[in-house]
Structures are given as structure tokens and as C-alpha cells.
Write a protein that binds this DNA or RNA. Sequence first.
RNA 1: GGCCCGUUCGUCUAGAGGCCCAGGACGCAGCCCUCUCAAGGCUGAGAUCAGCGGUUCGAAUCCGCUACGGGCUACCA
Length: 487
Amino acid sequence: MTVRVRFAPSPTGSLHIGSVRTTIYNYFFARQHKGTLILRIEDTDQDRLVAGAVESLYEGLRWMGVTWDEGPREGGPHAPYIQSERLPLYQRAAQDLIDKGAGYFCFCSKERLAALRAQQAANRQITRYDRHCRSIEPKEAAERAKTEPHVVRLKVPDDGVIAVDDLVYGRVEWPIETIEDQVILKSDGFPTYHLAVVVDDHAMGITHIFRGEDWLPSTPKHLLIYQAFGWTVPPIAHFPNVLGQDGKKLAKRHGATKVEQFRADGYLPEAMVNYLALIGWAPGTEEEVFTMDDLVQRFRIDQVQKAGGKWDRDRLDWFNGVWIRRLADPDLIGRLDPFMPAEWDRDVIRKALPLMRERMRTLVEGRELVRFLFTDELTVDAAALVPKKQDRGAAARALARATAALRDVTPFEEAEIEAALRRVSEELGWHIREVSHVVRVATMFGPIGLPLFDSLELLGTERTMARLAHAADILGEGPRGGTRADA
RNA sequence: GGCCCGUUCGUCUAGAGGCCCAGGACGCAGCCCUCUCAAGGCUGAGAUCAGCGGUUCGAAUCCGCUACGGGCUACCA
């Protein structure tokens, strides 16, 4: 039997980290088993639709490197793959259940239902539907259904136990009396999630049902629907939730949760996939840097964690750094490109690359690292120019010496620049660190981490000299009058 | 309130009765390297395995209870 798994998001917002994690687990499993991956859009709640959500989904997953075989745009043998376009199927299924005596029309108003719930809650009773319409004669109900607004509910058995053998959580049981007569078809003719998911999974030949942990409590409802249809239930696995720092299910209020945000912040899809895969799954070895292909090969359902895992930005940042360092030069350049202003000289960026690559955790940080090479707009603060344990006058003198020494350096290259500055430090009796500090702040506008000598070479003689002169002015003027440079 | 799930360093986790007075990684601290910052290397702090009772010669690993946390409880998914 060939594996067919699906991921079935609701288009209610932009692609979310939590659902991505579930999606990649589906992906790993499908590809590992040379199976078929299906994308199905579950848009049965017309009130919650968000424009552009499907687009965001496609864009986000494409970026992450997740591909699938059947879906709304890809088509496939079970098209359409959007639930709102499959309404007749669900309506027929609901009618089927009614005909079998496993479902019934319910004419209760939302007001009655709300009042019922309120009353039950006030009496500290279990809030559940009181089966008011269950006793209406089928013929009479069918007749009323022609004119009256109604829903279809599932006839849940009175007692017994229903259980699932979850691939992650093991056996989970529910007393049937805790389950109410679920609405399966809404008054607008749309199915509820519960009906739609069962009908579609069956119709589309889904062999394994994988979804987030938050669905575990509604599994008995689905089991009962399978039972009512007389269908066999495929193996089911729930994956633990991704949690925010407070231990609650990751949500918008936890900060960045959309993949497009991480993309814009300069994260690599490789790092996202790698990091996300390791929340809730571990290979049982001490390895932890994995490509998508590695993960497809190594992932195992029985190694999936039961407990939810907290989102840890620091760890993601580390993985991102790892993946940036792993990229080949041309690849890294390509990734960096969209983050660099168009007017910045790509040639210079290419030359700066070896200096940057071990110093950025995100592509955005990479951009900030080389900003000084492309703009003179940044300002220097006089106090920042003065090394620790030195005073302003000394800094001014050192700057003057360095300027003089640098002026004559030819060729203006890293080794020669270093030699010149080392000579200055000897003459001054300063540590090279202190000389570097002054020159660094003067030319790079701050304690930028790139190596100074290489950076000056990239900057070139002219701009280096101009910036040194400018810094000298700042040091010389100062609010306290300062000491004039003596050179 | 009801139903269900979970609980190993701050975080992600290894661990499926003796190899564990618990290993790795992130983060943190220190040292080395070093023009700064990173990267890299080394070292260190950090978990009485939620608690309590059992089973066993022996328990993080098996059982029970309790506590705490979480999810669900809609004509939302």
C-alpha cells in the first residue's frame, strides 16, 4: 500500500510556525515512504477566511522547501482540494448518515443552545447538547428540513468506550457519554471540520492521519463518525504543540510566529527546518545539524516527543549561523542579495564575504556589518573614539600618527596596512588594540566586528583618509575644547 | 466545572531496570586564539530525573496517587 498523507491548513492567516512544524513532519514521512503528499485547504468556516492566506501558504512552504503532489493548484485524482468546493460530497454524506439512522436533523436555534449551555453551566453540569431534536420522527424531521433552518447532528451512542491507538501518545480512551451529539453539517450547508476531515480523508485514500496535539480531544468525535459510516480508521498520530516562552500554545502574542517574518529577518529555510524538526523529535544520537534530506531519511514517528516544546529564539539563531557558515560563497551571495540595497556595489560585497560569514547570525546582520562600506552618512561620537584608559588628547595624537602612517601605505593592502599600524603602536607605546580601536571607530563608525586591516583595504585610501580627517576634527573640537592634535 | 494529554539542566533533548549520584546542544561564565567582534578549541556552573508511595537485589526508566502545567469543551479549525 502506498503512503498517502495530507496536511490540511485553514486559510485563516499567514503561515504559522506551529503548523509548519506539523507540515514538515508530514513531509518527512511522505517522502521517506516514497508516498504521496496532499495539500487540502480546509475552509469550511466562511467567517474566518483571510484573503491571501492560501497565497501565503504556498509562498511560505515553497520557501521552506516543502513540496507536495496533489493540491488546489497541482490538481490530482481527488480534485477539488478545497473543501468549500466539495460541498455536495459532505451533504450527501450527511444525508447518508440520516438515512442510516446515524444522524438527525436539529432545528434548535442558536439562542436555545446558548441558553441551554448557560443553564447547564450555572447548575455546574456538563455543557452538552440535550438531544432535544433526536426524538423527532425522521419523516417529520425530513419534512420540516425542507423549509426550516437546521443542522445535522451525529447520533452518538449512549454509552461505552471509544479508543484510539495513537502512534505518538499510545492508547487513549474516552467514555462515550462525555461526547455530545456533534453538529456535522451546519445550517449554511457547510460541513463542520469533523465531518469534512473524515469524509475527505476517506475519499482521498489517506493512509496516515497526522496533525497537531490540539486535535487529540476531538479524535473520539471522528472515530464515531468513521464508525457511523462503517469505514476503517487509518493509523493516527498527534504531534506535540510548539509552545511560547510561557508554555502556552504558540500564538501571535508571542511575537514573531509567521514564516514570512523570519524570512524577512534574514533566516535561512535550512535553519528553520532544522531547528523546527528538533522541537519534538530527536534522532537518539548526538547529531543535530540536518538537511531536509537527512531529516526525510532519519525521521521516525516513534521518536516523536509527547510533551510540547518551547520556542527558543537563541537556538534558532545558532542554527542560522551554522547554516550561513555552511553555504558556499556564490550561494551565500545570492541569499544576501535581496537584503542589500541595490546601489551597494556587489563586487565589494563579494570581497567582504569572507570577513562577514562567521560574524552574522542572520542575513540582516550581514547587511549591517558592511553598511560602513557604502555610506558616509553615519556619525562618529568623540567619546567612542577614545580607547579605554586613554584620554582624548592621546587619542587625537594617535589618530594623527595613524593618519600620517596610512597616507604612505602602498599598495593599500591588508598586510601593509597592518604593518604600518603596528609601527604606529610601537612609536606610541600603545597596544595595537588601542590604535586599532581609534582607527576602527573613525573609519567604520563604531565597534564593527569586521577585521580592521581588511576593511580598510576594501574602503580604499581616499575614503580612509577622509574619514580619519573627519574623526580628527571631531576629536579636536569637542564640547570641552579638547586638546588640539599636535601633528 | 467536565474530558484528555503532559512533567529529565533556564531552553531543545539523550535515556526504553543496573553502562546514569544522568549524556549532548543552545544560552551563560572563564581560559586559549586574537587588531575588535565573531568563528573555533578547552574548561566550568547548571537537573536530588515534578512530589509521594509501591514493585524490584536494584528505578529517570514499571505501577498507583497527588501536585503543577497544557489542550479541548462552538453551527472555529
